[in-house]
Design a binder for these strands. Sequence first.
RNA 1: GCUCGAGUGGCGGAAUUGGUAGACGCGCUGGAUUCAAAAUCCAGUGUUUUCGGACGUGUGGGUUCGAUUCCCACCUCGAGUACCA
Length: 988
Amino acid sequence: MQYNFNEIEAKWQKYWAENQTFKAANGSDKPKFYVLDMFPYPSGAGLHVGHPLGYIASDIYARYKRHQGFNVLHPMGYDSFGLPAEQYAIQTGQHPADTTRVNIEGGKDKEGNVIEGYRKQLDRMGFSFDWGREVRTSDPSYYKWTQWIFIKLFNTWYNKVSDKAEDIKTLITTFEAEGNIIVSAICDADVPIFSAKEWRQYTRKRQEEILLKYRLTYLAESEVNWCPALGTVLANDEIVNGVSERGGHPVIRKKMTQWSMRITAYAERLLNGLEKIDWPQPLKDSQANWIGRSVGAIVKFKLLSATKDKISSLEPKPLTPKNFIEVFTTRPDTIFGVSFMTLAPEHDLVPMITTTEQKEEVESYIEATARRSERDRMSDVKTISGAFTGAYVEHPFTKEPVPVWIGDYVLAGYGTGAVMSVPCGDQRDYDFAKHFNIPIPNIFEGVDISLEAFADKDNTIIANSDFLNGLTYKEATGKVIAALEKIGHGEGKVNYRLRDAVFSRQRYWGEPFPVYYDEDGMPRMLDEKFLPLKLPEVKKYLPTETGEPPLGNATVWAWDTNNSAVVGTRLIDHKSVFPLELNTMPGWAGSSQYFNRYMDAHNEKAIFSQEAINYWQDVDLYIGGSEHATGHLLYSRFWQKFMFDLGLVPKDEFAKKLINQGMITGTSAFIYRLGHHPNVFVSKELVDAYQNEETKEDVLRQIQSVVGNTLKDLSFDKIHVDVDFVDASDQLDVIKFRNWQPEFKNAMFIPDRAPKLLREVEKMSKSKYNVVSPDAICTEYGADSLRLYEMFLGPLEQSKPWNTAGITGVHSFLKKLWKLYFDEEGLKDLKAEPSAENLKTLHKTIKKAKEDIENFSFNTSVSTFMICVNELTTQNCQSKSILESLAILVSPYAPHIAEELWEKLGNSTSISTVSYPKFEAKYVLESSKEYPISFNGKLRFTIELPLDMGKDEIEAAVLAHEKTRQQLQGRTPKKVIIVPGKIVNIVS
RNA sequence: GCUCGAGUGGCGGAAUUGGUAGACGCGCUGGAUUCAAAAUCCAGUGUUUUCGGACGUGUGGGUUCGAUUCCCACCUCGAGUACCA
């Protein structure tokens, strides 16, 4: 009987679907285990072999956990809002919902190409997903809950005292009773101070404006990253090297009114939370880096409004709210080294403090920096530029005047947008001072600063600094902060690099905000019971002529408050019918709580029931790509903590363990095309030989014999060849190549048979002809072979190249496995009692396979199975019990063949929940050991000795051995090292 | 520049606490089977050699009876980040 994988795989996929084998119940006597994959964006191009790597690993683990007796939740869904569907809609006019459905469920695209569909592709690989819990972020029944969370965020503020998010009502109550002086909140910087009386006298609009400054999602005019080519704003994590992550378009800074998420409220908790989750260190590092906590101080420098000559006569005046400049510094200990102050050119105070004499220079500098794009400014960090404002501030301790400059090395968006410049202690300040001839006072003990700044905190001893002299960095910092606080000129402060996240996108294919704008133009939330607010139909998916987002094209997009319904925009009267928000939410909105929604995916009354969330708690294992480190994975943690504060989820971290699977790259194939002879192709070997001086002439002659002797100098172009035309020996199938494209129809090859190709590892991409689809592999070798091979390639986390040729190794393993159970006639007569050898092989395998799977070392467990099958084949194992256990061991990796073997052995239920074989040490105990005998650390020979032999006996046995005497040649050993069970080393 | 990770045969990779380097697979070489091919099976396969051995895990040093593994310096590649005060 042959191993007919196509038939077997189709049969069991059908069986699993019909019997709902992998349906997970929300409650069970078994312990729970939640295995999650990052859900995919369903693109029209379909999956290539790189995509399922993580899914295969998580599926193996999920299946293993079922064998271990866990109730396993292993869901899958689609992150189906996004840019590609929208851009396709703009080009073709097709509704993104339609193309998205085709990409998932299959069908035809506009050109009539057959799209297989993600679901079918995934099904062919035999995943044990509980498809009954599928979610699609673009489905109104799903995004209803994304909108719901948005409303919750709007109705919440962050109380620093309780250190958590609280209902906005508690804030309003406080305002009404006591004003905001006693409120300690994470809010906008420009909140005015008011009393309860003042609050009550404010208009409703004024009150709303103030509350917006406290809400966890708020509308604010802010500087955003605007991408003109995409017509939308982008978040910081959507920009790579100053250009858009998608498409590589330039990005400029622009002021716009946008929804923002107050993620900064959670900065500290997001940072601390990293300590209790088992996530990859590089990923934690990059989140920590992104949050960018730095400890230092705020220092206030009083403004002196006069020119330098007159300052000395000025009377000292107390600080008032408007007459100082605030800086943030991590080195308050160097305050006596300040010789100037630098503001970002965009700093609010610049126009106010600039003197008439300096006005022209400052304005032209500001104009020049504004003209430079973000990218220019970033790529050119060496050019030093700046301008003097003419203004001075007063040093808080020395009372000396300090000149105020502006310079684009100071960023408006970090800290206070102003720095106290200490040229002796900071290289940027140093360079700036050198360039503009500003003095560089030295405040470090025994340090030469004639060439560069001294920034080594650990070896700092402060000098020339009044009361800080002789102190270390740490001592001086503490002392100076205390002194600043005492005179009211500053305080200790922790600063974060993390910015609030802009949450508006000028796009069509995203979640609509459940927001309308009232008669005052203030945002109001729809009542929860009217959700979902569905995306309106539009004629065009582009921005409107007046520059509004695509939803501006909708004719039915207004909120009728009398009837609680979406109505035509013509009816807007700002009395009872109001305009709805035209922006949509960003890509990460839908993915920030999807893992919790899976727990109760069809609940219409709540995002999930409390029973469901309390049962499943959190994700036990999450597998996905590292590219989401500072996007999805940070935002999801933020929303989880928010949900936790509201008491909606029991855990404030959503995933205990996370693994980043590596990328599978392609192995591109190239043939060399002869210069000036576009019809002639030369093998890699000949081109290599041509590069070698010794063989160059031979190659030249060989090529001349084909194309004529006129050719003296050879040149070669590398041409991509479809990897489908290449065999395991890297030889080209010339017939396939000639039929590939018309220009190759009459191609000639040197040598003319199976020329060797050059192979290089590159990212998989259509244009490189190195994309391999899992469907083709499933058809030719089967899903079980694909699964095994993806795991066998190497460690899960590592990036590694795909080469289809190698799959024959795991495929013939499966055939050998099959042959242990079947011969030509059918199932073998498996009545033999297991031999000691059989049991040893089996139990060795159980032990190793279990260890490997628990360490996520899937590549080595595949080797273990190969060794096991090779041994059992040699042993001619005919024991049913051994072969039953083997089928279970293999089943997480190659589930189809395992089910078939299991059934043919006479079992009537699925193998998927059978308990894992138990390792028993007694079967693998050895009585003797082949001891390696080394002399001075170098292995010479081995001797077999009983394992229970003691050190002394071993020494005696080894020294008595004839080969030992040969090695020693009469010398006496100086030392004999014996590690029982391991090695013997003789030093002589 | 900074942070993190990695360098092992022709290739993917293995070696669990420092203890027989190269498991397993691909490829390659030879053989069996076949009219032939595919498939299958058997043997070999780090380099070198005077067939005793010698040399071998990016480079140079160190610790150790013993180092792919630990320490120091350097080189190369990859990922992230980038004027963060």
